[in-house]
Design a protein around this nucleic acid. Structure first.
Length: 645
RNA sequence: GCUGAUGUGGCUCAGUCGGUAGAGCAGUUCACUCGUAAUGAACAGGUCGGGGGUCCGAUUCCCCCCAUCAGCUCCA
């Protein structure tokens, strides 16, 4: 029997043996770290019997699969511990996830955070006992019978969902049995460092129609030091959290009397958004967009035509009552039908196309109360919204134009690293959410796919993430908690033009339906700001800082000079504030540093006399003295170039 | 909306096993006029998230709201 190793080396064995023994004989060191193996690319337990030629690979914790197996086994230990402390609990599922694992339980009584320690103690007992983990195979029937006996309703449901005649693998450790595809570590004692991190609710099978179970999150590492490092990194990440940092820096606040999801942008935050908005609107104008300004509300008729009323009525802020009022209004949740109405004003020829409409749109969406999060999910927000109405031939170049604008903006903000692309498609089985026109869906998805493939964009496909009227290309960004959000989206709409009676006259004098691209350029300003705060830990690139420089007096003798310099810098396009309080310079510097002011300029008697300034950068510390002209050149260049370093 | 947690001066937090609260920072005033991440002193600042209930008495116990955080679900 020949085993082909990863490096191409071939090892021969005279008789069959377990994967663990094979690994052991190949390399003592590697074996010590082997968690499981890959046989012909398939993950197997160390107890797996090798009986024919194969490609053989040892899987360690350095391997993503190895981490997953290690953590998955920890999840089993968690389940065993919970089961032994709370015998009435019912088990659901417990997979490994990025950076850890979770397990869902159905508890009879409530579980509190303080119970986690008790569970950890029990887990430690199980690990110390070093119970062997044994795999066996049951028929569907046998498994169903066993889980029914144990009263494991959720496991039973999972078994019953399997096709008839299929086999079920179960893993046994001590008196604890768990249905699982595996593989697993050979024994519970292999787990060295773990921690239960948090407690949360989660719906059975991910559907809110089902019962909410109790989910316990945890993580596990090979070494205690690695676990500690991971937990410290989590704490570090929280320090960058825009929701904390943004409030500390005076960028935004909330007020319980104003309401959930309604952040107030304070002077600094408002200034940043103004800077970004001017930048985006100017850039859009350069690229042939026409600015519109449309109402913040409309009669519900409008949303009935678009279909939004039927899809999203319960997420709209409605003014009036359909039963009793002649007219019912709703705050706008999107801009599309307003710009379509503008398009429809006057007959359009193919010569008029493409029409590129853009608007910095205030939108309102009544998000569920538990969804709100800082500046990322809010009920009122500002979207750089826009619609391009074009002929079929113009669709691809226009889409490319949109992507070019988006790249330009992302680059200007230094956000190109860390974004990923998602091709969001419809779900053919979801007749509720999507317009029922499979032919149009397939056609428009094929068009979008061909465009983005031609552009060489790497993306993930996501079924069931499309808008109800068409497929999307979403630009995704991860926040400090690792949660991914869409920051920008570009959509192809095959449905709404017809609903709104939009048309153009083609070369042959025939009336045609245009294509529509729904697009954002910088996304939702509030959310983009949140991502910027987290990316730069509050120290935003100079060009978008509300305060570029702060001039500080060393003593009261130089206050007048400080004020003069402020005027001069402001005139040169450098947003400048002053600090002439009667405080020590170290104190003023410390404050400026904590507020992440890019440049702090100090004027004492020496500078005042020779007409220079002492410059300190928030990143590089004291830069020494320079003339005012030199400073203006230095800062001015970085501002105009939108230097993000 | 659901699960769990949290809510005490502008901020960070302590405290009260039921007898109307305390610190540090920030603020104000005074002194110091100072050289690149905190000068010193004094003063001022709180309906203990809101509303009900129990009690002689509630910030503390109970109920209902509101807001905040993590997760689930949702996201045109």
């Amino acid at each position: 029997m020949k085993l082909t190793l990863k490096d191409g080396k071939i090892i021969e064995f005279s008789e069959k043996l377990t994967a663990g023994d094979a690994a052991k004989s190949i390399s003592e060191g590697l074996y010590r770290n082997a968690l499981c193996v890959r046989v012909d690319g398939q993950l197997k337990d160390l107890s797996y019997t090798l009986d024919k030629d194969c490609v053989f690979e040892v899987v360690t914790f350095d391997d993503e699969d190895g981490k997953a197996v290690y953590r998955h086994t920890t999840a089993h230990v968690l389940a065993q511990a919970v089961k032994s402390i709370y015998p009435t609990v019912k088990l659901a599922i417990g997979p490994s996830i990025e950076n850890g694992f979770y397990y869902d339980f159905d508890f009879v009584s409530k579980l509190g955070t303080e119970d986690l320690e008790k569970i950890e103690a029990e887990m430690n007992k199980i690990i110390k006992a070093n119970l062997p983990i044994e795999r066996s195979v049951l028929s569907k029937k046998e498994a169903a019978k066993a889980f029914k006996e144990f009263g494991e309703d959720y496991k039973l449901e999972l078994v019953n969902d399997l096709p008839d005649g299929s086999e079920v693998t179960v893993y046994k450790q001590g008196d604890f049995v768990e249905m699982c595809r595996g593989p697993h570590l050979p024994s519970t004692g292999k787990i060295k460092a773990f921690k239960l991190v948090s407690l949360a609710g989660a719906y059975w099978k991910g559907s809110e129609k089902n019962k909410m179970l109790t989910r316990i999150y945890g993580t596990a590492f090979l070494k205690k030091a690695d676990l500690d490092e991971y937990l410290t990194a989590l704490e570090e990440a929280k320090r960058r959290d825009h929701n904390k940092l943004g409030r500390e820096l005076g960028i935004f606040m909330t007020d319980e009397n104003i309401g959930q999801g309604l952040p107030l942008l304070m002077p600094k935050g408002a200034k940043i958004l103004q800077i970004l908005q001017r930048f985006v609107e100017d850039e859009e104008e350069k690229r042939g967009y026409l600015l519109t300004k449309t109402p913040l509300m409309a009669k519900n008729n409008l949303y009935k035509i678009s279909g939004h009323w039927y899809h999203y009525k319960d997420k709209m802020f409605i003014l009036g009552n359909e039963e009793t009022d002649d007219e019912v209004f709703a705050l706008r949740p999107m801009t599309c039908p307003f710009q379509y109405s503008i398009y429809n004003n006057g007959l359009k020829s193919y010569r008029d196309l493409p029409k590129r409409y853009a608007e910095t749109a205030t939108l309102f969406r009544n998000e569920a109360s538990g969804e709100m999060h800082g500046l990322i999910r809010v009920r009122q927000f500002t979207l750089s919204d826009g619609h391009i109405i074009c002929t079929p031939e113009q669709l691809e170049p226009e889409f490319k134009g949109v992507m070019d604008l988006i790249y330009f903006l992302l680059r200007s903000m230094g956000l190109t690293e860390g974004v990923s692309f998602r091709f969001s498609k419809y779900d053919p089985n979801d007749k509720e959410k999507y317009i029922n026109d499979p032919v149009a869906w397939e056609r428009s998805q094929a068009i979008l796919k061909s465009i983005i493939d031609n552009m060489g964009i790497e993306y993930e496909e996501a079924v069931g993430e499309a808008a109800f009227y068409g497929p999307k290309l979403d630009i995704q960004y991860k926040n400090v908690h690792g949660k991914e959000d869409t920051i920008i989206t570009v959509q192809i709409d095959f449905a709404l033009a017809e609903k709104f009676g939009m048309s153009y006259i083609d070369e042959n004098g025939e009336k045609k339906l245009p294509y529509i691209i729904h697009r954002s350029s910088i996304g939702c300003y509030e959310r983009t700001l949140a991502m910027l705060i987290e990316k730069y830990a509050g120290a935003l690139p100079l060009w978008m800082c509300p305060e570029h420089a702060r001039v500080m007096s060393l003593t009261d003798r130089t206050i007048e000079k400080v004020k003069e310099l402020q005027l001069r810098l402001n005139a040169a396009g450098i947003r400048t504030a002053i600090d002439v309080r009667n405080e020590k310079i170290g104190y003023k510097i410390r404050e400026g540093q904590m507020e992440k002011i890019p440049y702090m300029l100090v004027i004492g008697d020496k500078e005042a006399e020779s007409g220079v300034v002492s410059v300190r950068s928030r990143n590089d510390g004291d830069l020494g003295v320079m003339t005012v002209e030199e400073f203006i050149a230095l800062a001015g260049k970085k501002i105009s170039e939108r230097d993000c370093k």
